[in-house]
Deep mutational scan, measured.
Amino acid sequence: MALNTPQITPTKKITVRAIGEELPRGDYQRCPQCDMLFSLPEINSHQSAYCPRCQAKIRDGRDWSLTRLAAMAFTMLLLMPFAWGEPLLHIWLLGIRIDANVMQGIWQMTKQGDAITGSMVFFCVIGAPLILVTSIAYLWFGNRLGMNLRPVLLMLERLKEWVMLDIYLVGIGVASIKVQDYAHIQAGVGLFSFVALVILTTVTLSHLNVEELWERFYPQRPATRRDEKLRVCLGCHFTGYPDQRGRCPRCHIPLRLRRRHSLQKCWAALLASIVLLLPANLLPISIIYLNGGRQEDTILSGIMSLASSNIAVAGIVFIASILVPFTKVIVMFTLLLSIHFKCQQGLRTRILLLRMVTWIGRWSMLDLFVISLTMSLINRDQILAFTMGPAAFYFGAAVILTILAVEWLDSRLLWDAHESGNARFDD
């Protein structure tokens, strides 16, 4: 018995066209964080690309023209004298008006014999932002004059995390709450300039795509075929072959399989920071003279006294001054041990922890910024005066060393310790 099946006739004509040209192939790229070699397709503007294995951002879609970056830099340069030299806060102490600005706080630190601690604050609040705007201006002028731009481009990517104007702005709020127990506070004209400078700096850093600047100024022929001998440069993120001198053909720094002496430098910085954190938390970090009496505060006791007036601000200072430094030390110690013992479990967790400490590390400088600003506000000789204690130097040095330890660690070593050939990683 035959089955009668109805015929289905399409209502619209289906047209099949042959592909007349070869589909576009992607360029081969190595991930600078996990060293995976993959094919990167062509990316349009405002599109980002991520590593298929570790999800690290390979290409950032946010990109401004150099002219727009230069305009932002010149605007920031105009704001800087007002943000640093004009009063941020006014207080009335014992019937006398006192003005506080950024430069005055750094000068008070240096004047009291601790120039190293003052230079830490100076670099993060004044030096690094000033280098940022002058570097962008150098790129703008240098591109037109045919100057060598490689050193500036190499420095810009590392400079971003040292620009800490946003953290200093939080420190202004913390210092205001600490001082309000002794005097009446009012915002100064410099505060508005400083807030504007923070906003412009944040926007500029978020749109400063150094890798795209490398592509514009020093374009290189990408690798179009897969080759395990391809290496990625950690300076400019170019994937290719080393030249005859073993250097990256684009930025001219040595092109090595792994960062040289990464573990040794990381261990040295980490152990030194552990040693410095002990006096930083045991010795007094601030000293207040009130009517001839002397009151010393460690980091913890200062947080407890701050909690009596504002528990939320005390929580912020606790996280930045105690929780973050010790968390960074514990995480980095764990990561280094996992590399030495070739741990194969929990790779995803370790990668996330490394990215976390990379982002939060700079916030530990908050305590030094609060001390710097408070020193310029309260300084009335023996009637009422505020000065920093010996722990300030140890704390600042420990924070900087932990930042350097994270920067010096080559994250690809975590993958080397893991089993080879993993296309995915999980716990």
Rank of each mutant, 00 (worst) to 15 (best):
D410N: 00
R225I: 13
V198H: 15
H252L: 06
L78A: 08
A269G: 11
T239W: 01
Y28S: 15
C124F: 04
R225C: 12
C233V: 00
G171H: 03
R350Y: 12
T134D: 02
I288E: 00
L276H: 04
P325M: 02
R362D: 02
L401H: 11
M356F: 13
L270M: 07
P390A: 09
R259P: 04
L156S: 07
D181L: 01
A137I: 03
N143P: 10
R250G: 05
V174Q: 02
A392G: 07
W64I: 15
G118S: 05
E228A: 09
V275C: 07
M356S: 09
T224L: 09
S301A: 05
A49I: 08
W415I: 07
T387A: 05
R355E: 09
Q186D: 08
E228R: 05
L208R: 08
E215F: 08
I378D: 00
E211H: 14
V329W: 12
F369E: 15
H46F: 15
L208K: 06
R245T: 06
S376M: 13
L139R: 00
L377H: 01
V329K: 07
T67A: 11
L257C: 08
E86M: 03
P6A: 13
I19C: 10
I131H: 01
T75M: 10
L154F: 05
L191A: 14
L94Y: 03
E215N: 07
C54K: 00
K12N: 12
S301Y: 07
Q104M: 13
F395K: 00
A2F: 05
A187F: 13
W84G: 10
G118T: 03
L354V: 13
E211V: 11
I351V: 12
T298Q: 08
G315T: 14
L409I: 12
G173W: 07
L78W: 10
A18F: 07
V329G: 07
L409E: 00
L205V: 11
G235I: 13
D227R: 04
C236G: 01
V399Q: 09
V121E: 14
S376N: 01
R348H: 14
Q33L: 13
A314W: 04
E296H: 09
V370H: 00
T9R: 08
L276T: 05
S39E: 10
I351F: 14
R348L: 08
V179L: 02
A272W: 02
I19Y: 07
R231P: 03
A272G: 04
L323I: 12
R260L: 04
I288M: 02
L255K: 08
P219N: 10
I106L: 04
I360K: 01
T374H: 02
R17P: 13
F326Y: 03
I311A: 10
Y218I: 10
C236H: 00
F341P: 09
E296D: 05
S262T: 11
P219W: 10
V232I: 05
V152R: 00
Q264F: 01
L159F: 02
V329T: 09
P242Q: 14
D99K: 11
Y168T: 15
V198N: 13
I311V: 12
A269E: 02
F194K: 04
S301C: 07
I136E: 03
N209V: 04
E212P: 14
G421V: 09
M388P: 03
I253Y: 15
G346I: 13
L149I: 06
L66Q: 05
G188A: 06
S176H: 04
V133A: 01
Y50C: 10
P32N: 14
C34T: 00
Y138K: 01
P284H: 05
L230W: 13
V125Q: 07
S39F: 12
S376L: 10
N291E: 02
I116D: 13
R59E: 09
M388S: 06
L132F: 12
K12S: 09
T239A: 05
A18Y: 11
H340Y: 08
D60K: 11
A100W: 01
R225Q: 13
